[in-house]
Amino acid sequence: MINEQVYRRFNHTVAACFVIYFLFPEYILEIKREYYILLFWILIITVEYLRLNKDLKVIGMRDYESNRIAGFVWFATGTCLILELYELGFVPQSLAIATIIMAAYTDPLIGEANQRFGDKWGIGLGLLSSFLIYQLIIGVLFYSIIGSMVAVASERPKIKWFDDDLAMQIIPILVLTVLSLMDFSPDLPQNILGGKL
């Protein structure tokens, strides 16, 4: 058997590729691209329904996920929600891209660091990773510092019905979006990708 923990981590980091969505044209096969988000989410929910109710074997699941919603569903839900919020004009593209990549990398990094070196390292490396990603993509210290702190804080609570895979995407992006609307906040670059694939 393949190493399931490595498989889980790789699945998590590959999720950063969701940002390719922003290079897609507005219409694909004459259907607006946002409908594909919904289609993708329904596909994920269907797989999860079959896994929980019809004994569909999905490798890489943790023991406690045998009778509760799996991490991949929470992550996909968070990403689909961010993309829909972007399409509705509620969140800027720059924050959507940075948050999706940040969540895809920081959560497994914290998990790995916690396991190998302890919780303090998990928090430290999580802060560093999320700060660097926000700073590289957005380039505004104010948002990078707050975004990284909120992201790591969102990862900590272990709540059965609000997984950290979802929390690490939704909470930071909402906090940063609200902050960007405040008078005292520095300007936030709105769009960083404009091209079409």
């Binding site: 393949i2 190493n3 490595v6 790789f10 590959v14 990398y105 590289l136 694939l197």
Partner: peptide, 26 residues
């Protein structure tokens, strides 16, 4: 190809280690 080198680098760097570990496991 769209000249977004930072995002391309992030995708490469973030997937490099887990991708390598996955290949070793395979």
């Amino acid at each position: 190809s769209e000249e977004h080198y930072i995002i391309a680098s992030l995708l490469f760097l973030g997937n490099m280690l887990p991708g390598y570990a996955m290949a070793m496991s395979l």
